[in-house]
Design a protein around this nucleic acid. Structure first.
Length: 424
RNA sequence: AGAGAGUUGGCGGAGUGGUCGAACGCGGCGGUCUUGAAAACCGUUGACUGUAACAGGUCCGGGGGUUCGAAUCCCUCACUCUCUGCCA
């Protein structure tokens, strides 16, 4: 979440940023928040003063009791009762105001980086670059949801039977392709300097708050109510929360972690067009990369992550493009997001396979993730993450783009991982 | 799942109602000594809030209560450990 001091000191900049993110009533809400903040500080200092007096009287009473001056002690006790009442009432008001501020802050999205294009929808995203030839397919080429049936490698019906829609069963070479991709992605990340992590895939409430899934996106996560744990929608949640409530030594930076996990998304309300086959699932696999850096290094890190992701797509020989998301299409917690899209030839459209974001201090503020700068002051770090990569749409694109009338050729880089080079 | 014990500063570990933000040890930092290092000795060493700077306030797992005063007493929740049971 945003820091109150930033709202106070850079009000105009904050409002401008919120507007760019298409946040409604930014000016009014910020003004209301600052008003609350003013009240809070006023109440705080009144409360603290009374509390301070009560504290010193209590100490005096202690001394009087020790000296056996009972009567004086009793007199002082009477004096504090009124103080106590006032303090209590101020404390109540204070906590109400603090709560209001907290709620208001949760509602504010992160501010966009200056390079973020203005815009409202995906139409307004900026295409940063395109790479690779879009292959020409033969007549009768099929979309992946037909190919997976033809070669019997991914089974949605079975998934329906044992779980429900959006939970496919991968079989035979389909399953092996999954495993090969996961290993390939992890090996590449490790070679790039990331440390592999296997985190829990059920997380507690505090972790959900830390990375910003809670409270606003509660409905998107599966919730195990009996134990109040959430199935992770991305490895970002457990891997970033490892560092919750930490003050990291500068020597440990940047933190570079990677991990493969299944991801679970309820996708409530988002079913409709373009969700056939592997395009949108409730459960899918993803390799995630996470970095935690000094503030001045975070954009460099984001570029590095973007290049890493592009390298994967190049090695898989998939045509892709990189988008810089516009203010209206960006995630709530992000300051700058690059989306990587792969061209799905049989569907004739681009599919998002990765998203790399710099959250600057937005998550770190919630996480209390900090470092000590040279003058010994604790300051918030920057957090970043990216998919490297999410499997289902990669699988869809590989199947569609590499199909021949009697089989599907696997990208060369996967051969050693797969143990076969063609699905037929 | 049943029974019991516990949760204190970076770590270990005192503290059971009154100058306790917290003894002591370790670690860290600074200094003396040394050609340098180690050892020894001296000093220092949490976070948040707040202020122009002081001051002040909050924090001993979370929340609530008793009291003039709580790390210390009470309630409640969470978590951890040990034993028993079950199990990959």
């Amino acid at each position: 979440m945003l820091q109150v001091t930033v709202l106070r000191e850079q009000t105009a900049h904050v409002i401008e940023g919120l507007n760019k993110k298409n946040y409604k009533n930014a000016a009014e809400e910020v003004a209301a928040l600052l008003e609350l903040d003013q009240q809070r500080r006023q109440l705080q200092s009144e409360h603290d003063e009374l509390q301070g007096r009560a504290n010193s009287i209590a100490k005096e009473i202690g001394v009087l009791m020790k000296n056996g001056e009972r009567e004086k002690a009793e007199a002082s006790k009477a004096e504090t009762s009124e103080l106590k009442q006032k303090t209590k009432s101020l404390a109540e008001q204070l906590s109400t105001v603090e709560d209001q501020i907290q709620q208001a802050l949760y509602k504010l999205p992160n501010l966009p980086h200056e390079s973020v294009p203005t815009g409202r929808t995906a139409e307004d995203n900026e295409v940063v670059l395109e790479n690779g030839e879009i292959p020409k397919l033969f007549d009768g080429a099929q979309p992946h949801w037909e190919l997976i049936q033809k070669y019997d490698i991914i089974d949605f019906e079975l998934g329906n039977k044992i779980s429900g829609a959006g939970f496919p069963v991968y079989k035979g070479k389909g399953a092996r392709l999954q495993r090969a991709l996961i290993n390939f992605f992890l090996d590449e990340a490790i070679a790039a300097g990331y440390m592999e992590i296997q985190p829990p895939i059920l997380v507690n409430e505090a972790s959900g708050f830390g990375t910003g899934q809670l409270p606003d996106k509660e409905g998107q996560m599966y919730h195990a109510t009996e134990d109040n744990l959430y199935l992770i929608p991305t490895a970002e949640v457990p891997i970033t929360n490892i560092y919750r409530d930490m003050i990291l030594p500068v020597a440990q930076l940047p933190v570079m972690n990677t991990g493969h996990t299944p991801c679970f998304r309820r996708e409530a309300g988002s079913w409709g067009a373009d969700v056939r086959g592997l395009n949108r699932l409730h459960q899918f696999d993803k390799v995630e990369i996470v970095q935690i850096t000094l503030p001045e290094k975070s954009y460099e890190a984001l570029e590095q992550m973007s290049l890493h992701i592009q390298g994967l797509l190049q090695k898989l020989e998939l045509p892709y493009r990189v988008l810089r998301l516009c203010g209206g299409d960006m995630g709530f917690t992000s300051a700058l997001t690059y989306d990587m899209e792969v061209y799905s030839t049989a569907q004739g459209r681009w599919l998002e396979v990765s998203s790399a974001s710099n959250f600057e201090t937005y998550q770190a503020n919630r996480l209390k993730l900090r470092y000590k700068n040279e003058s010994g002051k604790t300051q918030l770090l920057h957090t970043l993450n990216g998919s490297a990569l999410a499997l289902p749409r990669i699988v869809a694109a590989i199947l569609e783009n590499n199909q021949t009338p009697d089989g599907i050729d696997m990208p060369k880089v996967l051969h050693s991982y797969l143990g076969f080079d063609r699905i037929s």
